[in-house]
Design a protein around this nucleic acid. Structure first.
Lengths: 194, 194
DNA sequence: TCCATTTGTCAACGATCGTTGACTTTCTAG
DNA sequence: CTAGAAAGTCAACGATCGTTGACAAATGGA
């Protein structure tokens, strides 16, 4: 009873999906504080009360909207020389590809002033970024290396997609790959670090 | 008449300074939306109405609080090999030195959800970062090079001071200089870029 | 000392927010 | 067809916010 119903394209499910899509769009664009429940409702052409009915609160709606699955490729020591390029290519796919949603934008947009979003972003780092780097690095250095990689990638995302610094927006994919790739390569598997 | 009075340590000026200091602290910590005028007033042990009296509105208070002067050293082509190290050392001074205020934290904390802060940050880039890089780079590449430098530095600031990713917080100054310095060096004056 | 300017206090305004409950409409199972 | 559940509408609540204006206290120059 009350099992996970596997198939059920009921009426309410579509409304629920509409609300979630509207929320993801507005949270990604304006952040947690900047997107009100009334805004989300308007974007979904629905009554504000419905948003609360389907998701219990704004916090819960945000938590549902801020789901991130980076699907980073498993790095192999074998392909040691192409690790940086692999990472930056996946980064561009996440941020500009049609398949990936605005999950990272949602988190990054709110992480500076919303502790829940910040914690969620630290979780993404610990559970999705760090393990991937750890697969090709000395376990003792994995945290620092993954941290350095993240600093470059989050900074690029900030400048290009959120802050929209004109020269960074103007960079072509090839320019990004050729310039940032080697940085990630060195951070992930190069010397130095400590 | 109504000239810029050069000396006047009047009573009100101290109150004004107290409010501004409280505002800078809270804006840096919680961002524009997260820091209310009532919070600022409480932090300054003053009535909320006074905040509006001394600064005309919250927007104007934020504008006064978000003043940034990076005081970046003039780079010289002569010292070509130490440019990256010079930049990252100045970065650490700005973010952790006692002299520099929390100006950058104020801007970065709010730039993701406040268009004024974002614009102000783009101004800092255009007027303070880009010219410094332009002094040692091909003018045609200066924007892109400065953009890449900024992506790394803003990302590091995000991870270390705002998001507080544990492995990035744990990095020592020397580790940061040794790892990030070469990245900035290559972005500022290395090959590639385009 | 007296008066005018400055400085500070207090209460309230209108707006917006998240959230709730009562109500009506629509859909569907028996 | 009909009763009951599901889905949607509407108005309002309490809270917080930026901001304002009326008023009291303090200050300082004549």
């Amino acid at each position: 009873m009350t099992e996970n119903q596997p198939k059920k394209p009921s009426k309410s499910d579509r409304t629920r999906a509409q609300i979630l899509e509207a929320a993801r769009l507005l949270f990604a664009e304006h952040g947690y504080d900047g997107a009100s429940i009334r805004d989300v409702a308007a974007q979904a052409s629905i009554d504000p009360a419905m948003v609360i009915r389907y998701f219990r609160s704004k916090d819960e709606l945000f938590a549902r909207a801020a789901v991130v699955d980076l699907q980073l490729p498993a790095l192999r020591v074998i392909d040691r020389s192409t690790i940086g390029e692999t990472l930056i290519r996946r980064f561009l796919e996440i941020w500009e590809g049609a398949a990936s949603g605005p999950g990272m934008a949602i988190l990054l947009r709110s992480a500076t002033s919303n502790e829940f979003a910040a914690e969620k972003l630290r979780d993404v780092f610990a559970n999705q970024v760090r393990p991937v780097v750890a697969a090709v690095a000395d376990p003792a250095d994995a945290g620092r290396r993954a941290g350095l990689v993240s600093s470059q990638l989050l900074g690029l995302a900030m400048c290009r997609y959120l802050l929209r610094l004109p020269p960074v927006v103007a960079l072509s994919h090839d320019e990004i790959i050729q310039n940032v790739g080697p940085t990630l390569q060195r951070y992930a598997v190069g010397e130095e670090v400590s």
